[in-house]
Amino acid sequence: MRFDSLLDSVGGTPLVGLPRLSPSPEVRLWAKLEDRSPTGSVKDRAALAMIEQAEKDGLLYPGATLLEPTSGNTGISLAMVARQRGYQLVCVMPENTSAERTQLLQAWGATIVPSSAVGGSNEAVRVAKEIAAANPEWVMLYQYGNEANARAHYETTGPELLADLPTITHFVAGLGTTGTLMGAGRFLREARPEIRIIAAEPRYGELVYGLRNLSEGFVPELYDESVLTGRFSVGPLDAVRRMRQLMDEEGIFAGPSSGAILHAALGAARTALRDGESADIAFIVCDGGWKYLSTGAYDGTLDSAEEALDGQLWA
């Protein structure tokens, strides 16, 4: 496949069957390999769409500075696109993220403002809003409320899934900004009204939930509960166990968030099997395992990996 530039190659990722993890010939699992994106994660789609929309809206000019709260992948994608388009990027990133995320962001030329581990991404959002207020000339794309984020998935991820898997019955993805689930979910629901749209939400260690009061809780502006049919909380033990299973049984080297999503997808597969339904369950592999090698997620026992991820923003 030939493209005019790296940015032109965003999207069009493979959908691969999982013959070993699928429980029966009638209940099949399919992985959409978003790690095959320019920066190695699903966030390239949203980052490119948000920057292109801001350009259309006349918000950006050569040398403009973008600002974004991110636990990593969105920042890395924005840094790559910003570099191509001649913008600066400042990322507010919680300090409890993997070392590779920092290295990649810096390699693509982003400036990192660390935010406290306590409170996780909520705290990064709060700090970014403060910085935005103090620097009105900077442009915060704000992935949690930017319609272009969900629209990228409505216009690309959803149609790709439907084209590759017209018999799709379930779509399972991670719940972070909610952009993937809202965008692809809406598209797929319009085409297949009976489809199950299932969210896998990472359950982090206690540090991440260390809010001072409940009013600091956070629900992304993009989130519309009515798009989903189910939402599951997946802890690090199940995420790492499934991540390793994906590698052992299907040869796919994915990050822990994809393990969490596979866990929810397998739950849906079990239910379909129990109810005697046939099912084509597509799920998102958000990124590869490369950025998590230093966390200990791939070494040692499941328990030691779980312990290593405790307090980290692993998804």
Binding site: P69, S71, S121, Q143, T177, P202, E216, G217, V219, S233
Partner: peptide, 10 residues
């Protein structure tokens, strides 16, 4: 039963 505050991801 697990009770958790809503937090951001991404």
């Amino acid at each position: 039963i697990t009770i958790l505050p809503a937090v951001a991801g991404g």
